[in-house]
Write a protein that binds this DNA or RNA. Sequence first.
DNA 1: ACACTGCGGTTCACATTATGAACCAACGTT
DNA 2: AACGTTGGTTCATAATGTGAACCGCAGTGT
Lengths: 255, 255
Amino acid sequence: MSADAYPGTQAVQRAVTVLKAFTDAQPELGLSALARVVGLNKATTYRLLTALEREGLIARTGTREQYRLGPELIALGVRAMRSSDVRAVSRPELETLARATGETATLEVLADGDVLILDEVMGSHLVSATHWVGTRWHAYATSTGKAMLAFLPNAQLRDALPTRLALSGRGTRTRADFYKELEKIRAQGFATNVEELETGFAAVGAPIFNHDAQVIAAISIGGPRTRFTDKVIKQLAPRVKQAAARISQQLGFRP
Amino acid sequence: MSADAYPGTQAVQRAVTVLKAFTDAQPELGLSALARVVGLNKATTYRLLTALEREGLIARTGTREQYRLGPELIALGVRAMRSSDVRAVSRPELETLARATGETATLEVLADGDVLILDEVMGSHLVSATHWVGTRWHAYATSTGKAMLAFLPNAQLRDALPTRLALSGRGTRTRADFYKELEKIRAQGFATNVEELETGFAAVGAPIFNHDAQVIAAISIGGPRTRFTDKVIKQLAPRVKQAAARISQQLGFRP
DNA sequence: ACACTGCGGTTCACATTATGAACCAACGTT
DNA sequence: AACGTTGGTTCATAATGTGAACCGCAGTGT
């Protein structure tokens, strides 16, 4: 059934399929369930699982009855994160942004509908260390998240959005309103977040495109609403947008 | 050469070997270099790489000449991180610890300078039920608390410690003495608590580290001093330490 | 006590699948 | 212009991975 596509290493492809079968919704799976999900024979699935377990990419629950993603994947993920070239290219831009404004600059990517912080440079104002890296937020309530969502193909956008768009403090936003906001973001090239995620916090974000003109990340400057007045946000927006554009350009993006 | 070990899925094992070849020191590798590192035929390596690239676990540099770990690996890593939270991973270790020793095993984290009990498995000896979960103690007077404090960065340690270090029964301890004890704990990898918290109660605790080598929790075995003689404590310490190490490993910690 | 159904795990004959020596074409040095 | 690289490709060979059918077990409804 599944378009087997290319020749070559089938076992590897299947193994990866097995890994991808573990979602946040289903972080633990039994052998039979897993075989059903990935559409493979139980014996095959079992062999793949044990092979992956030997390598540490798969672990088992205490009772050894269920499987889940293993510790080695965390290590690999961290390494992948570090070696991602968006990160390398963005670093200097984040630093100049943070130095020039005194606020905190972040680099974020989409991961399963959430926004994942890849890198961060603290401004002069805040005290907290850089332990935000690795945390996640709802994409639709962050400046970076919205900046990315706005430039996503429709099909992917639908997957990335949850059914309800909850906001801090205020109630739920309608889908129509949200789409209208995305359109505005597309037009102006940046997105804002004013106390949507957390009261007292505001940010401006702009998208980063790869050589293939696809959104792959976003950067932002954020800080307390007391300093991030509407006027300040308006001043910061073009800076963030330009920094993002420079990064995109370095990644091979040609408008 | 490499002991092929078990039968079964060789391609998968090799594919994982390829992934693991990318280190922080060598985040980008060419085909030939990679083949040399993993000791595989160039053709084989190439097939594995393209299969992995198709799945997004491997990406290529802008010029498409070098390979590196791909974005999908970040997503998988994050998922692995989420699905292996301390509590779930620690559970089985606590259980075996409690069963093997007959004493009560606990999992604790730091919260505002206090130690907070996250989970607990009762041994066969005590009567009290598991309603300890959720209670808090002074970190500096518990085995788990000290185990965590000992491995905390200095800045955080200062925040976590109160100005006075009161002890049950005995008077106040000097800061210098306490730092000296922390140093010892760091050296031996575990901490003890002999009637510091409460007369008649003793415990051994060991720290748990996350993928980023930060202390995030600690486990302990505790019981009445009548059974927890100095000799018994010495016997239990390595067990606790090893259990903690296993948990850390499952969380992605690489010593 | 029963058959029934699900589970994780195992077996083994079979052939699909992965393998690697040898091969290109292209680039940089010498 | 011969050499030593590189990334990428070919193809005959057999080793590798495959999956239907199997096991023992635990739970469940009868």
